[in-house]
Amino acid sequence: MPPASSAARIPVEERLFSLVLALLATDTGLTKNEILSTVQGYRQKFAHSGDNSNLERQFERDKDDIRDLGVPLETLESPGQAGNNQNLRYRIPRGEYELPADITFSPEETTLLNLAAMVWREGSLSGESRRAIIKLRSLGVVTTEPVLGYAPRVRVRDAAFEPLSSALEKHVIVQFSYLKPGEGAPRLRTVAPLALVQHQGRWHLYAQEPESGTTKTFLLRRIVSPVTITAKAFPPPAADQSERALAELEEVWRSHTATVQVEPGSDAATRLGKRRGTVAAASGDLELHYSDANILADELAGFGPEVLVISPPELRDAVRDRLMRTAADHG
């Protein structure tokens, strides 16, 4: 039987599982050649005298898939053979693979983690959470109460989230087109991602521009192109990036206020009145906090005649221009 057809019967997960087992079992590591010629799923396709470049590419992809799961797949140089790529050795060090023995979860904690995983309704965080829960169940903790049907569900709509969170983990530079609020055309940005944070319900990327070293915050919603993950790595930043990002966003939000007049009893009065931080003045006018004037202008325009912006003047103009534009587009 030709090697290709017998190999076709080995499912991908069997090949990946066999690779993990083989690399866990070795202390000194296996060379690529040893792996491809002996490990289940590769060996069936291995040509002892011939070209194995397809198989080598497969192995490269498999390594990425395995590392994605948090499995620490290590590369070692063979003694005395530094720089020789063919003699690199691969292994999975047991101590870094296994969950430390002192980490245990009580039934109550397990219930809480199950709920935390259910928060993410869709998208990347939902898949990652599901996998984390499978690993958690591996510990065999039986929960005290059944997982309740009730957990708030959060939808992450931004397509940029998944590639950015992957780049964040690998500490590599990303590129994307960004439509800055107030600008007419998007511009290509090249940045080092530092954190992804949700503030006022919206996801933001906190990132550093490699040339200038300045940090900037980007709204995921305004990333208008696919995110390109480059191969260029940067040193891992300090661990408090998300706190810093949230603190900066909170400061911006707090320092911006708008005053609006709302039609009493209207949808605008009810909803704007319930926003976090909104204060009603004696006159009935509402004072709102906001992070981004363009986003607030879109939102206020949706209320049509129920809202009149008093200040600041830029916001007043922005809302009026939007309403005129919509009226013209539909005239």
Binding site: V20, L21, A22, L24, A25, D68, L69, G70, V71, P72, R94, E96, Y97, E98, L99, A101, L112, L113, L115, A116, A117, M118, V119, W120, S124, L125, S126, E128, S129, R131, A132, K135, S138, L139, A151, P152, V154, S165, S166, E169, Q198
Partner: peptide, 24 residues
């Protein structure tokens, strides 16, 4: 064979649960 214990969480798996906990 080979396996003694449960695997660790990946950085992203842990991050997803942590973000979910922050929501809760």
């Amino acid at each position: 064979v080979a396996i003694d214990d449960s695997p660790r969480f990946s950085a992203r798996e842990a991050a997803a649960l942590i973000a979910g906990l922050q929501y809760l």
